[in-house]
Write a protein that binds this DNA or RNA. Sequence first.
DNA 1: TCTGGGGTCCTCTTTCTC
DNA 2: TCTGGAGAAAGAGGACCC
Length: 344
Amino acid sequence: MRRVLHIDMDAFFASVEEKRHPELKDKPIVIGGSGDPSKRGVVSTASYEARKYGVHSAMPLKTAYRLCPQAVFLPVDYNEYARISGIIKNILAQFSPVMEDVGIDEAFLDISGSGMSNEQIAREIKERIRRQTGLSCSIGIAPNKLLAKIASDMQKPDGLTVITMGDIESRIWPLPVRKLWGVGPKTEAFLRKIAVHTIGDLASLSQDDLVGQFGESYGHYLHEASHGIDHSPLITYWEPKSISRETTFQTDTDDWQTIARNLAELTRDTVDDLRGRGYKTNNVTVKIRFSDFQTQTRAKTIAEPTDNLEAIRKVAFQCLNRFELKKKVRLVGVRLGGLTTDEV
DNA sequence: TCTGGGGTCCTCTTTCTC
DNA sequence: TCTGGAGAAAGAGGACCC
């Protein structure tokens, strides 16, 4: 029987800040952007204290400030969070060689081969993380990734939830569809229109219905997921598919020089990253988001993979010149795809 | 009124090639 | 030479994740 453990750090960024600034303990903390709520940016993490005021991640900083002006607003210190994340991943690696990293504050662990019980292993992981970092986490254990992830979210913070296939009807089906991985705001809204609110509602639809509504791939996925079925393996290693940089202007602009200068800088940063990681690219995409939030892309494939800055910048500007810049621009970005290495 | 940044994957359309 | 089709590749857009 497969046993998959999912671990999710509780309000990770906010908890790290609280640990190194003890005077912030029990205060509402909002981490995001430059840390200045009068500037453009969104909330990366809100402490549980700040969540009481309705502040949540992905919310504009300006909105968060309106809801909770007394909160302490801090910038994202990615390097520090990555350092702590490294300590945690090292602890996890001691429990199983099969680990999948899911971003900075989450991971899956295949513990099928462990001699320890679910409760034993979870308590031991929590204890070691608390001892070495002072932070708490929530853990879910289930026969697959899909259910383990749902489980870790069921009793936050500092939770431990074990789900078996026998629990699907009683514990998974009553949950809102939004709890399923892969169901976002758009799909949720669509499902609501056809009176599907819970995972159980979704499970009552036939596979043919779902495939008819959502297409072969997603329809099939939704059918299996709603029944708690997931055979996906843990991904322990992967190569990046693309490297990108983008920036949102503090105020929308129609000044071509400003857009061009930013594109040149983003291209340099992206190529630095590309070279630093030993890749070449054969596809350049430029992205423009207009003041009305409409987003357009223009892409060009290069015959020969390259990591040459001049060559890549030239293609990026060819893409930029294909846009009709009639509206003000709020974001410009560049993405390098078709990554390859020199190794044979 | 607001709506970041760095990714992946999927679908549909257009373009190329045979 | 023209035309059409099939299939692949490229381009564009969008949903979703953390």
